[in-house]
Nucleic acid binder design. Structure first.
Length: 576
DNA sequence: GGGCAT
DNA sequence: CGTA
DNA sequence: GCCC
């Protein structure tokens, strides 16, 4: 029942040949109104379905669902009733024929994949299968597959456009590595993950990095639970199932218990009590941490780009307590209104409109600059703005070197509705062999963007090259600060932009390496090492015993080289 | 007790 | 040490 | 903090 021609819209657009706008948008799904027909569903099941629907209310770019109180208003009706006679006791047959009537599995699986699945595969009544198919809302043959984008093959075309994540992966929620599991963006266990995240951040800020890693793993497992196990954890689950989940060991498990204390008192009777069900407990220690002044100071310090936990603890130890203290300490110029003075690096023009070339070096994104820019960096970037930035950047690049291909990676590619930064992987057939050609292009491109007033800063400390020991490198990146021109976006905000220039042979490794999430990447590398004797980094897969390098020719190639099943980018959200 | 991504 |  |  999972074998239809559906597509993850991500891949068809992730081909480097498609540097066109609005490449990957998992979204565009209409709000789907769902009615729960309670007959033959017990209170627990109804509560689960209710929670699932609620969790999909505010996801503008994923699956959007709305609980609906009246079957005739619904697009989809969830039902465990399989006989016409029985159904007619609850629902007018003429109305039933105008709806898609599916089993609750449709909801579970659709939430898991964050897209509305084909209703016919889940028809509750064989007799209404055709109607269910016909009335299926927004069935996931995406518009983009039928329209536009001629499928011209390029040497970089990956042939992975129609991959779907195997449902088998969705039921792998107890697997050891997050690269074996499916981790969607939203989940009913979000609250648990948020609580664990407080502990994770706290351990990190206090320098207990391995403890923090354990919490990251526990969070990653929790994020997968929403999938094959898409329900809020109950006491019974805790007793039977949670014991067998990896990375929820004795100490973390006891905290999970704390977090869910009380939630098994829910609904023995009706939907009306479901709001009680939603009220979770909290982890006691988190409350202590949240109200700790030291924690708040360290967290504020470390929120500045370039300041990690070590520097944060140092600043605290010499008496600093607030970011304003930091401004003084780092000598940030403050305007009369008390706001840090934004840098003025607009391009200069002669009276007749010609740009005066600037020969000055590009300002460094150091801690001082990051302090000045921190308010703008905190403003999240919408998907359409990400796409706008990508368009502009690729237009500039095309001027400098025609024929480049690119993919927006990072959180955007994982389907996040809002991003903190923008990551773009870029390649060109001429860059085969890497080395000087890549360095040259990166340098010229960043300088051009700077001279055009599109890039204001570059992070130098981190301008690292590909981490391989080869003489030549096949990957280079530029960590920059970008601004859309005021004519395009009046806010003219400073945005974090990472450009990754890859040789064509390194392209797909780079795309996988930069799509994330962080935990997903660590587990890819750990899996490659411990299970396969391979090394994965964002420039290649390398066999450890003889250093033979493999250059995947598609994103799926990376997965199969590593002996892993395909996981859609939108299901790689193993971090919170 | 060692390893935890590169 | 900080970053992706 | 957890796993081997």
């Amino acid at each position: 029942m999972y074998t239809r021609r559906s597509s993850s819209s991500s891949d068809r657009s992730s081909g480097p040949e498609s540097s066109s706008p609005g490449q990957y948008s998992p979204s565009g799904y209409h709000m789907i109104k769902v009615y729960i027909l309670q007959a033959k569903l017990d209170a627990t099941a109804v509560a689960e379905l209710y929670t699932l629907i609620k969790s999909c209310k505010d996801v503008p770019d994923g699956l959007r669902l709305q609980l609906c109180g009246n079957p005739s208003d619904a697009d989809v009706i969830l039902s465990n009733v399989h006989m016409r006679k029985r159904l007619e006791r609850h629902l007018d047959w003429d109305i039933a024929k105008q709806k898609a009537i599916v089993t609750p599995d449709w909801l579970h699986d659709s939430v898991a994949q964050q897209r509305p699945l084909n209703c016919a595969d889940y028809a509750a009544l064989g007799e209404l299968r055709e109607e269910t198919d016909k009335n299926c809302p927004d069935c996931d043959l995406p518009k983009c597959i039928c329209s536009s984008e001629s499928s011209k093959e390029s040497l970089l075309d990956n042939g992975t456009m129609n991959l779907i994540t195997s449902p088998h992966v969705s039921y792998n929620y107890a697997a050891r590595y997050s690269c074996q599991r499916a981790s969607p963006l939203v989940c009913p266990n979000q609250r648990l993950a948020n609580e664990l995240s407080v502990l994770r951040i706290h351990r990190d800020l206090e320098g207990k990095t391995v403890n923090a890693l354990s919490y990251e793993r526990a969070i990653a497992v929790s994020t997968g639970l929403r999938l094959a196990y898409p329900r809020v954890i109950t006491q019974a689950d805790l007793d039977t199932e949670v014991v067998h989940l990896p990375y929820l060991g004795e100490k973390i498990r006891s905290k999970v218990l704390l977090c869910f204390r009380g939630c098994y008192h829910y609904v023995n009777d009706a939907l009306t009590k479901i709001n009680e069900f939603i009220r979770f407990g909290r982890i006691e220690e988190c409350n202590t941490i949240r109200s700790s002044a030291r924690f708040l100071s360290l967290k504020a310090f470390a929120s500045i780009h370039g300041v990690g936990s070590t520097t944060a603890r140092h600043l605290y130890s010499i008496g600093l307590r607030t970011v304003e203290d930091m401004e003084q300490y780092y000598d940030v110029p403050i305007a009369d209104d008390g706001v840090p003075l934004l840098p003025n690096n607009e391009p200069k023009y002669t009276p007749n409109g010609k740009r005066i070339p600037t020969n000055d070096t590009i300002p460094d994104l150091d801690i001082k600059a990051a302090l000045v820019l921190r308010h703008e960096f905190a403003i999240s970037i919408s998907r359409s703005e990400v796409e706008e930035m990508h368009n502009l950047i690729m237009a500039e690049l095309n001027d400098l070197k025609p024929g480049c291909a690119s993919t927006i990676v990072g959180g955007y590619r994982r389907g996040k509705p809002e991003s903190n930064d923008v990551d773009i992987v870029i390649t060109h057939a001429d860059l085969r062999g890497g080395g000087e050609k890549i360095t040259g292009l990166r340098k010229r491109f960043v300088e051009r963007l700077y001279n055009r007033g599109l890039v204001s800063h570059v992070a130098r400390g981190a301008g690292f090259i590909a981490q391989d020991s080869f003489r030549w490198h096949s990957l280079e990146n530029a960590l920059t600060v970008f601004r859309l021109p005021a004519q395009v976006d009046a806010r003219h905000l400073h945005r974090r932009l990472d450009l990754i220039i890859a040789a064509p042979e390194a392209y797909w490794s780079a795309v996988v390496g930069w799509t994330g999430s962080k935990m997903f990447e660590r587990d890819l590398r750990l899996w490659a090492k411990t299970e396969k004797g391979l090394k994965f980094d964002s420039s290649a897969v390398t066999r450890r015993h003889d250093s033979k390098r493999f250059f995947p020719q598609s994103e799926n190639d990376v997965f199969s080289l590593l002996g892993l099943q395909w996981i859609d980018p939108t299901l790689r959200n193993a971090d919170i």
